[in-house]
Simulated scan of single mutants.
Amino acid sequence: MDDLTREAHLESLQAAAEGPQHSCELRERCRVQACLLGLAAVVPFATGAWLLWANHVFAHSILVWGPAWLLIAAAGAGLAIAWALGRRHGSVVLALTPDTIAFANSPAPAPLHSFSELFVDQRHLHSTLAFTVYAPTGAPALRPRCYRSLAAPHAWPIAGGLQIKLWYVCLTLDGEPLDHQQVAYLIHDYIEAAQARRTLGQLFPGVQRLGEVRHSTGQ
């Protein structure tokens, strides 16, 4: 690598290291979805209950019981999911600082430079975030998910701990909803800046701040 290439690489690292300098919280917004799902569950519940009543009063047929109880069970599942989404609404999905990231079930914030890539998979009803773990650092510690995890935006390791995954309905920043591209760009900027600062710290071990890097390189 010649001097011009090294200088260009250093300048790109310095530019990337100037990334976001503030902390932020990405919160879940899913109250509307919870209400709609709860209202939708009322229909099969009412239908199943009416079938049971009508069968008891008029038909007395065992063949009606199965469909009726299936409708009621489906309604119960829908109401349970709606309740979980209602509990999930407003939860902090990700807490970002210039140097760390915290998941909902993180016992402590993890260094942002622990991650190298981010993937966003948008579906019709929800989106998924997958963080690729930087192998030398290893996956950050996460509390195990439990049966209540639907009501909280917990993350979980996959691929033998090489990725951290979580799903969400809609993320907001300062109350404003973000689309999947805005989410990807925002988190990517934090990760890229942290990786650049880490690389600069390895190149200049005595430098603690970006301004000192510029001074030490004569810029």
Rank of each mutant, 00 (worst) to 15 (best):
R27N: 08
L63E: 06
P98K: 12
A34K: 03
L171N: 07
W53D: 00
A108C: 00
E7V: 06
A59C: 00
A77E: 05
F45E: 02
A130N: 04
G76H: 07
H188T: 15
D99P: 07
A74T: 12
G90K: 08
C170R: 12
Q181A: 07
E11F: 09
A194H: 05
H22S: 11
V42E: 06
T97C: 05
S61C: 01
L125Y: 01
T132C: 07
F103P: 06
S61G: 05
E18W: 10
L112C: 04
G175F: 03
A49V: 12
A80E: 04
A40T: 08
Q202G: 03
R198P: 00
L94M: 05
Q181H: 10
L37R: 15
W69I: 15
I81M: 02
L63T: 15
A196M: 11
A130Q: 10
Q195D: 14
V32W: 13
T132N: 11
E7A: 14
A108R: 11
L52K: 11
D2C: 06
A155Q: 11
T172C: 15
L10V: 09
V183D: 08
L166F: 12
K165I: 00
S216P: 02
W83D: 03
S61I: 06
S61Y: 03
G138K: 14
L200A: 05
A151H: 03
F131L: 14
Q195H: 07
I158G: 00
H56E: 08
A68G: 02
A41Q: 03
V213G: 00
W83F: 13
Y134G: 02
H113K: 03
A110H: 02
K165S: 09
Q163T: 13
V207W: 00
V133K: 12
L200G: 04
P67W: 03
Q14R: 14
I81Y: 01
Y190D: 10
V183K: 08
V43S: 00
V57C: 02
G201W: 02
L37T: 09
P67N: 04
A194I: 04
I101D: 01
W156I: 10
W53A: 11
H124M: 12
L63K: 14
Q195G: 03
H56G: 09
S149Y: 04
Q122M: 01
I187K: 13
A82W: 04
T199F: 01
P136G: 09
L142G: 03
H180F: 10
G160R: 09
S106G: 04
H124V: 08
